[in-house]
Design a protein around this nucleic acid. Structure first.
Lengths: 221, 221
DNA sequence: GGCATCAGAAGTGTCGACACTTTAAACCCA
DNA sequence: TGGGTTTAAAGTGTCGACACTTCTGATGCC
């Protein structure tokens, strides 16, 4: 029923250049095109996006509030560095929000939702890399948060997602692609979550989600 | 030990006019000076704050991301209206974050923290109005979130606080100040929370906080 | 009077400009 | 050559300007 892929964001966007720059720059940061700690000068970005400084400036403000960009005391702007200490904060906050989301998603859970999640988990078992599994994992978690029906939960969650993905990209840079082993722990947790949701057990769904997300604090280096 | 009143915000602010306008405008919205749904035109605000449109525009972007201001499809800006449906979302999100915060606060809880909270609860029993009790209540919850030691939790929580306070102001406008009865439910819940925190029971603290915040969904009109 | 139309007012989106601050490089002297 | 100093380059904060869009209310027609 719900189709979270349709809306790219929980927020009703103005369709101006600032929004375009915001989305494009976010994508470039999360994909690792701008490495963490690198400078983000307004004139340079303005040239890069073929616009003036005003839209760039607005985009930077939005990105700072999403936690992807940091304003230094000197006034300069940099891509925010997300370290292990930050990962703990991110995952604790994710656990809090997603646990509540899983509980709420239970109320309007349909067989279509079960199908979507089941298909996603099936794909996870066939994933051939960390990157692919991560993408499927985030899709699944995003789906559950969307199914909560609570837009604010989604709006609070999205920045945590970008930050987490930005962190993952840095990890993937250092980790070789060869030593990938299927993440049986992750798939198992997702199966338990789906079981709880499809059989209408909100407390269990919340608990499984909480443990599953917090477990990943130790997982990611 | 922790002194949450010292820092007014979890975010390292740039000290420019945009930040000043942001903070002042937020205060005016939350205090009810700008009624919900009223127009926020950039030239008018620029004159009001004795500045140009640029800082005003930046402040509006930040406030939109805090959920206090909404950009209409036409491009115009308004003070966001927070209705009963929004209150449910706000309280569910607060419950998620504060429950986690209570759990985390347990790890580094000190007797000084116990003293602070106990003193706050003591003042609550002497409160003479909804407004005064609400202020003490939010101070207490803010304190717990700060004690979690998770800055992201605090950054996600603060906008929910502003939205909740903006909602309360509207309620107070309609409700007479005379029919105030001490909120024994609230005080009781806070006592239970303090008991759990001061005796080192994270699960219980998290559960008490969760139930306490969700209970308020029905309380506020 | 009621309703559509249309001009003027008001507002947003974007730009370039300029003062002030921070950074980087060139320079000088030992 | 090396370290401190000066100077130019680059960046931020703020402003006013202007084109385009949206609103408002005055006008005219029925």
């Amino acid at each position: 029923m719900a189709e979270p892929q349709a809306k790219s964001s929980a927020r009703a966007q103005r369709n101006n250049r600032a929004t375009t720059v915001h989305l494009r720059l976010r994508k470039e940061i999360v994909s690792g095109h701008f490495p963490q700690g690198s400078a983000l000068a307004e004139p340079t970005l303005a040239e890069h996006f073929h616009t003036s400084r005003a839209p760039v400036r607005e985009a930077l403000i939005a990105l700072e509030r999403e936690g992807l960009v940091s304003f230094e005391k000197t006034g300069r702007t940099k891509v925010r560095t997300i370290a292990a200490k930050d990962l703990r904060e991110i995952m604790e906050a994710r656990a809090a929000l997603e646990s509540m989301a899983a509980r709420l998603a239970n109320w309007n859970w349909t067989t279509a939702d079960t199908d979507f999640v089941a298909k996603n988990i099936e794909q996870q078992t066939k994933a051939g890399s960390f990157a692919e599994l991560s993408r499927l994992d985030m899709d699944l978690h995003h789906y559950v948060v969307t199914c909560s029906g609570n837009l604010r939960l989604l709006q609070l969650w999205e920045p945590l997602r970008w930050q987490y993905e930005a962190y993952l990209v840095e990890i993937f840079k250092r980790r070789s692609a060869d030593d990938y082993r299927p993440e049986t722990e992750t798939v198992l947790a997702h199966r338990k979550l789906l079981a709880a949701l499809s059989t209408g057990k909100p407390d269990e769904a919340a608990q499984v989600m909480m443990d599953h997300v917090l477990f990943n604090i130790s997982w990611a280096d």
